[in-house]
Design a protein around this nucleic acid. Sequence first.
DNA 1: GTTTAATTTAAACAATTGTTTAACTTTGCG
DNA 2: CGCAAAGTTAAACAATTGTTTAAATTAAAC
Lengths: 211, 211
Amino acid sequence: MSEKRLHILEVAEQLFYEKGFEGTSVRDIANTASVNLAMISYYFGSKEKLLTALVEWRAGYIQGVLNELVTDETLDPFEKIDRLVNLYTDKIFNHSRFHCIMTTHLPTIQSEKIKQLMTDIKLRNLDNIRRIITEGQKKGFFRKVDIELTVASIMGTITHITSSKPLYYKIYGIERNNAEAYNKKIAPKLKTHLKQLLRTHLDIKSDTGML
Amino acid sequence: MSEKRLHILEVAEQLFYEKGFEGTSVRDIANTASVNLAMISYYFGSKEKLLTALVEWRAGYIQGVLNELVTDETLDPFEKIDRLVNLYTDKIFNHSRFHCIMTTHLPTIQSEKIKQLMTDIKLRNLDNIRRIITEGQKKGFFRKVDIELTVASIMGTITHITSSKPLYYKIYGIERNNAEAYNKKIAPKLKTHLKQLLRTHLDIKSDTGML
DNA sequence: GTTTAATTTAAACAATTGTTTAACTTTGCG
DNA sequence: CGCAAAGTTAAACAATTGTTTAAATTAAAC
């Protein structure tokens, strides 16, 4: 991938994050990236295909690491859950702009291709987590839970935290737009919370027979 | 509020939900609502003020019911949590369009006024739930948990479910855009999952000393 | 060095955007 | 009725949108 093409993708990511897909003009991207307007059509074909390229570029990232974790036979199920929490929290916090585009901007785009692309990515992620949980159940560590909704709680919690930044800036008294201070303060808390939430949720010893 | 004004708000809600704020033109709203283009400026002043009016109209809704629940002295803390889950799930499923606008479209809007409005609404909600949890802690039912993150898990899970409809359509084999079948199938599952998740999370008896 | 392909440019394209204007009709009140 | 306020309309406004064109420049290959 040419360096210029990559630079356009990075600039587009920043702008889509700040102003949304519809709210960002192609001229805006071209000016910020210091390239001629026509270069974007030249490289990507259209604004929408630029977005698709961005998603494909970033989304492949987590798949490899997640796959390794799933197939690792040296870790017990609870450890895998803990690492899963670390993996997702770090990934989402480190690429928070892209994650924000995925969760809040992409769903607003009408294109069927984009919707299909997103669904595929989510399905692959869900499947990997499902394998970790069912493995834990087979080994007798985890009890019977609704796996899809458990995944929804993991992803939903992290997403809620990253997409409600202005709220948590206020709550935790962090100065505005200081993303680094935010991550440093929230990420460890979030990891602890999720690990503890999932431990009591999954542990067969805390089964109350409600389900 | 005049009937026509209300009708414009309902139409705008539908369109903002489908295509986002930037993706919806004022002409689009006017045509769909069968009113003249200029009527929207006449009634609301601008497109952005129309959005503000929509948020203020819908957001006040849950506050009253939530307040009642918090101050109800006949319910024990676990019952309050269960009712809270029912309340939010029903509210979000019944007004899923508005909720989707709140969570996925509003954050993309640059306006400081809109951002402030959203933060205020969320703070009020957070505060009510905080009161329920601290009450349960004082009475010795709940253990020490991170309240902000617990709220994030509740809201995040529900939001994740409502905003990933296409994914769950596929998983549960529901025909596309059959929102009613979706709600009927998912809402009870979601309530059970959240109640069970929160019970083991909050119950002082399942304290593992991790926090 | 010549030629072919890839890259880059400014300009123009038609379409759509949010908002305003000024003229018109309807409504409500004395 | 008479008249002022509220409601409604079509038309025009300037600005911006995504994309295309055709000419100019650079790079690569022979």
